[in-house]
Amino acid sequence: MADTQSAAISTRLNWLRAGVLGANDGIISTAGLVVGVAGATTSRTAILTAGVAGLLAGSLSMAAGEYVSVSSQRDSERAALEVERQELATEPEAELDELTDLLAARGLSRDLAREAAEQLTERDALRAHARVELGIEPDELANPWHAALASLVAFTVGAVLPLLAVVLPGASWRVPVTVVAVLGALTLCGVVSARLGGAPVPRAVWRNVVGGAVAMGVTYAVGHGLGSA
């Protein structure tokens, strides 16, 4: 029960962390795009069109990439489980010895490891080997559709902020308002991601803010240069 609860908590934290990172990507990539276009033109229509196109392209690309990645992971996990199932059917004693060795390597005495391996094997041999040997929870394999949808939503939520910040104000205020809004949002993302990962908050925030500022600075300079030319 404890192992199952721990795995569930770990899974939820991974999903939450992935959501924060997806939103972070949406903020930075969309902000860089719309600020670059705003550097080239004051046309609200052009900026909005570019921002919406970037939002759609980025969110769909993230979703597709996540679907492919998680599908590959799921296929690998299923293949590993099938190999383990066949080995348990053909070499049960060798698998019992292997499970005993793995448990002993985790700090159990040899006798206690053997007893635990026998009890786990009697209860559910495949689940025991999946957890101890492969680090897989058979009933909780990642769903590629869930991963794709989560990435799409997270990226879209992040991208909406810079898009609104750049199109709502007047022409003279668009870039400053967007920069302030984006840096504020990146600060929040840095704090949340650091808390989830147990990392130092200042360092995570600094990386986030500097990366976003550099991205907007570069794209604005390029857009302004091309617009002037």
Rank of each mutant, 00 (worst) to 15 (best):
G223A: 09
A64R: 07
E98R: 15
L13V: 11
D101G: 07
V70R: 02
L141D: 02
V209W: 01
A63P: 06
T45Q: 13
A150D: 01
A79K: 10
A50G: 12
A89L: 15
A117N: 04
E115M: 14
T121S: 13
R12G: 07
G190M: 06
I9P: 01
V210Q: 06
I28K: 02
S6W: 07
C189F: 12
R110L: 11
A147F: 00
S172D: 15
A159D: 06
A213I: 01
E84N: 07
S69C: 10
A46F: 09
W206D: 09
P200I: 08
T11H: 12
V192R: 00
R17Q: 07
A40V: 03
R74Y: 06
Y67V: 02
G197V: 01
C189A: 14
P162Y: 02
E82F: 07
L60E: 01
D139T: 11
V209C: 09
R114L: 14
L134F: 03
L164G: 05
V20W: 04
E122Q: 15
A148T: 00
R12A: 14
V218C: 09
T121A: 14
P162R: 02
A46I: 02
G39V: 03
Q73K: 00
M62I: 05
T178N: 14
E84F: 03
L102I: 08
R12N: 12
Q119F: 01
G198D: 12
T90N: 13
E137W: 02
E118L: 13
G32L: 03
W173G: 09
S193N: 13
V166G: 01
V209M: 13
R114K: 09
A8W: 02
T11Q: 13
S151Y: 07
G58T: 07
D139L: 10
D139W: 06
C189L: 13
A221S: 08
T42S: 11
E87T: 08
S6Y: 11
G212E: 04
G32T: 03
D101S: 14
V52M: 14
E133T: 05
P202T: 11
